[in-house]
Amino acid sequence: MTSKIVTLAAGVALAVSAALPATAQAGDTLSAIQERGSLLCTGHNGSYLGFAEVDDQGKWQGFDIEFCRALATAILGSPDAVQIVPISWAQRFPAIQSGDIDVIIKVTGWTQSRDTELGLQFSLPYFIGPFYVMAQSELGAESIADLEGGVFCANAGTTVERVLADYLESNGIEYQPLSFESGEELRAALYAGRCDALAGFGPFLAATRVNAPDPDSLTIIGEVIQLEPEGIVVREGDDALLDVVNWMVSALLLAEQEGITQANVDEFRASPPSPTIERLLGVSPGVGERLGLSDDWAYNVISAVGNYGEIYDRTVGEGSRYKLPRGLNNLWNNGGLLYPLVLD
């Protein structure tokens, strides 16, 4: 109920903002950030597993937060030049229109209506969000079809319900849906065995599994039921900022592809093995100036937060408690979908 009111309120806010000329001066957000000396980036109202969490000292951490820091480093030279604004899901689009934030980095799926009607621009996907099904291990299911007739649980009112129904119906799999309003209820039901399977966003499933009384009693089935490419969002007309965002993501990926890490970036800079890396790390000039940044921006980013793989491992991957496999979020040469752009 509450979520419906929030959605409604957000809708009204958006309608108003769409009806008016963009008040937050689009186009010069990049210079506004540089003038202000800090980047206004999205947090969460609470913690969102692995992506935006608050530690016991009240500090933000997580995958999305690392990208906020990376962007702040690219523009302003310091990972601390960022102000994380706590923002709910419903509030993120109105908030960027009103200028409360400069950029949305909040696992936001690139959809057509958001791209067009809402007056937003999306960056290259920085995360490929897969929806999976997780089943009770004792059922021995190896594919979703093996779960025919079972009870599938999902969060009520989310896209998951629809995605699940689409997938199962188009594959002719009979099932009994069971929805829960809150994530806590959903987990309790799963642990108590009321659900044969749980459908959801990959990171959420991984966290649910780690927290189970017996993590081995749950298995994530490898089939991807839907993909959601997540982009970084800026206001329409903020082309300069979008360029920076895209090349920041690309630099993180290129660094991983070339084996440049937080630890060895100085060695690479001292003796760059290829002209591309020379340009990336600002040894040969040009790469920053075109974006309106300093030439060593990518070097700063990598020495502040590491490359894409390091961020992933630290926050949601093997180095974290979530142990989310890289899967589709691997580089193209490792069987994933991510690739850097050409730095010429």
Binding site: L8, V12, A13, V16, T23, Q91, A95, S98, D100
Partner: peptide, 15 residues
């Protein structure tokens, strides 16, 4: 109350 607060937080900066 929710809509009023939402308007205060989000709509007013636009108007």
């Amino acid at each position: 109350l929710l809509t009023i607060l939402f308007a205060a937080a989000v709509v007013i900066p636009i108007l």
